[in-house]
């Protein structure tokens, strides 16, 4: 891999920006196109790019598979947990307005933010998980299953 000098330098420069762009997409979702799903994919893409350039092992040490596994669950938890929180506050499931009973719309903002974060986490982790799973398979001889 060492021979791809230009790729390595350029990608090292790019990857942080990709990640930041992911968060931009995430948080700008209320105002323009975007949201947790797209952001998650972009975030995962940044790690995948890293893995493609620097090798899977490097990527795995940067983002360990156990985190990925945890992230998957956490994503769903964050989303579902928001709903459970609204339950505990006495509203219906995912009724964000109960967060701030005085200004329902503020509550909605918080809620949307939280669940979008959950989506981001879940999507990014799952994308990475799939990539790790395929990338780590020993290459078989053709014809074997």
């Amino acid at each position: 891999m060492n021979e791809h000098g230009i790729l390595r330098v350029v990608s090292k420069l790019l990857i942080p920006f990709i990640a930041i762009f992911a968060f931009y997409v995430q948080f700008h979702g209320d105002y323009g196109p975007g949201g947790g799903f797209q952001a998650g994919v972009i975030l995962a893409a940044s790690v995948i790019l890293y893995a493609l350039i620097f090798g899977l092992e490097a990527a795995k040490s940067a983002v360990p598979p156990s985190w990925v596994r945890f992230g998957m669950a956490m994503g769903v938890f964050l989303y579902g947990g928001t709903g459970v929180a609204t339950w505990l506050l006495g509203g219906e499931f995912l009724n964000y307005s109960v967060f701030t009973p005085d200004h329902p719309s503020h509550g909605q903002h918080y809620g949307i933010l939280l669940v979008e974060l959950g989506v981001l986490l879940a999507v990014a982790s799952v994308m990475l998980a799939i990539f790790y799973a395929f990338g780590s398979r020993p290459v078989n001889h053709p014809g074997e299953d």
Binding site: G29, D30, Y31, G32, P33, G35, G75, V76, Y79, G80, G83, F93, L94, Y96, P104, S105, Q108, H109, G111, I112, V115, E116, G118, V119, A122, V123
Partner: peptide, 25 residues
């Protein structure tokens, strides 16, 4: 209700938030 400009996000995350929960799952 929500005061955000992107209606798509509002529908996805709030009005039909449970669908999105399902999709996340």
């Amino acid at each position: 209700d929500i005061h955000i400009p992107n209606v798509v996000t509002a529908v996805l995350a709030s009005y039909r938030g449970f669908d999105t929960f399902g999709e996340t799952v």
